[in-house]
């Protein structure tokens, strides 16, 4: 069974590569090198700050856009083009298909992020001429960004399993924005009363919480990230992604492929 998941995942990865998804790396490289050169000429003190802020923000946004745009098509496109028929008439369980797709997309993003990370550290080296110890926190920030991608991939798959790509994209983007303000959402919820408070709190806990996974600015200020936060964030992101995947499996498992 694990074999089939691996095959589906690697085919998903191959599809992304052949669809020229990794071309975004060129845009990223241009953006980053341009910024590094410009910043180096303009300001002395904050050049590192700008490179880290800009670099990590770009890594995050590029990845989110890729995750959403590929994620939403993963299932619905296969249904629409009927490529799924010849897959599911083989000894492939539906849940294996979903899980395989997830790992394929996640793998694509990890590879993409890996190349981007090399770019960020390259730019850092260019402006600072050497690495300092606090630069290791940039790695943690990148790790958190990947955790975010996992959650978004799973959510994209979830929407893709029952909705059209356009609607899925709207849902996923909306959740991404809401998720970035999730802590404030919980703040709002705490100010409500009675039933609405319960509902709002429930909703606030159910939407993806990205705020804790965004440590870009604190890392840019060379602040440490606590080990506890790393553990909790890892656990949270993995459980959340698994939850969304289970939802996708449940929906897909009962769906008629008309």
């Amino acid at each position: 069974m694990s074999g089939r998941i691996v095959h589906i995942a690697s085919n998903t990865f191959r599809e992304a590569v052949r669809d020229r998804v990794l071309y975004n790396l060129i845009a990223f490289a241009l953006l980053l090198s341009g910024a590094a050169i410009l910043v180096g000429q303009i300001s002395i003190d904050i050049e590192k700050l700008v490179v880290i802020n800009l670099g990590l923000t770009a890594v995050s946004l590029f990845g989110v856009v890729i995750a959403i745009f590929i994620g939403i098509g993963l299932v619905s496109k296969e249904i629409e083009k009927r490529t799924l028929y010849t897959v599911l008439s083989r000894p492939v369980r539906r849940w294996e298909f979903i899980v395989g797709k997830f790992f394929g997309l996640a793998g694509t993003l990890v590879v993409n992020t890996f190349f981007m990370a090399i770019g960020v550290f390259g730019a850092l080296l260019y402006v600072a001429h050497r690495f300092n110890k606090p630069d290791a926190w940039v790695l943690v920030a990148l790790y958190f960004i990947i955790l975010q991608f996992l959650m978004i991939c799973a959510l994209g798959l979830l929407f893709s399993s029952f909705s059209s790509p356009l609607l899925s994209a709207v849902f996923a983007f909306a959740l991404f924005v809401i998720g970035s303000f999730a802590e404030d959402l919980r703040g709002f919820a705490a100010m409500a009363h009675g039933v609405s408070r319960w509902l709002a709190t429930g909703a606030a806990y159910l939407v993806p919480n990205f705020s804790a996974l965004n440590v870009i600015s604190s890392v840019a200020h060379e602040q440490a990230v606590s080990g506890q936060l790393i553990w909790y964030n890892t656990g949270y992101a993995l459980l959340y992604a698994a939850m969304a995947l289970c939802g996708a499996v449940l929906i897909f498992e009962h769906r008629d492929l008309k």
Binding site: R93, R94, W95, E183, R186, Y205, L206, N209, A212, S226, Q228, L229, Y232, N233, G235, Y236, L239, Y240, A242, M243, C246, G247, V249, L250, E253, H254
Partner: peptide, 27 residues
């Protein structure tokens, strides 16, 4: 599959809420 996925879904939901609470405390 349905039962396993449902149980896992609820478990993950619960777990993620607990961890989120922890994250809040740390942060």
């Amino acid at each position: 599959v349905t039962i396993t996925a449902s149980v896992l879904l609820l478990g993950c939901m619960l777990g993620s809420a607990v961890l989120l609470h922890r994250v809040d405390q740390v942060r």
